[in-house]
Write a protein that binds this DNA or RNA. Sequence first.
DNA 1: TAATATAATCGTATATTTGCGATATAAGAT
DNA 2: ATCTTATATCGCAAATATACGATTATATTA
Lengths: 111, 111
Amino acid sequence: MAFHKKEEFTQKEQDLAAFAKAMAHPARIAILKVLAQRNECVCGEIVDTLPLAQSTVSQHLKELKTAGLITGTIDGPRSCYCINWKAFSTFNNEFNFLFANLKIKNEKACC
Amino acid sequence: MAFHKKEEFTQKEQDLAAFAKAMAHPARIAILKVLAQRNECVCGEIVDTLPLAQSTVSQHLKELKTAGLITGTIDGPRSCYCINWKAFSTFNNEFNFLFANLKIKNEKACC
DNA sequence: TAATATAATCGTATATTTGCGATATAAGAT
DNA sequence: ATCTTATATCGCAAATATACGATTATATTA
């Protein structure tokens, strides 16, 4: 009886949470940073910058890809990853919307 | 040997990840939304708006509080929760910093 | 003081995440 | 065809997260 009740929330709540979850690990933040720094698509160089095994990094990349934060295409013998700019922007807007509400109403903390 | 290697990342990466993690559940997004809507501090009314048991909600509130996203004070027999505006703002800046880097460099996707 | 109401905490079960080594896959080089 | 290089995937172990009911703590009310 200890189940995931996530379906009981609105789609927007679930989407925001899923996006946040994709960023909820320092390794994945670091990956996004690397992808942001090097404009051209990076592949296994990511592995070199992280204190993790290749298989673990590959898994994190997969999670980011599944969540839609990055795209990945096979480029010959190697793989090429990039930020999914559009999805990232959508999330940022969504987040700012929530944030804007807070700003208007809660500028002065109440407790 | 399946250990948390989180310490091996920078403090900023860890902080950003921790903040994202706090929002990485629809219930916690929903809680933030409720706190944003009602300007005055809300207590157990949160429980009524969620499809979860009281103890579970209390746990989510604790996580949000530990992560610094909300503050909570005991107000007589009930508890009063509020958005931690300052921390929220700090996170937003941090996030926008990462995001800004992306915006400048990656406006056109490469793959 | 006893009863009630609100909310936190404990104990527990289950599910998910994190991480690694080993293995598979696929393309390029020899 | 075989070797090498780059990545993805599988299988496993350990750690965390999610959820709930039961219990506890605290303050107000009767």
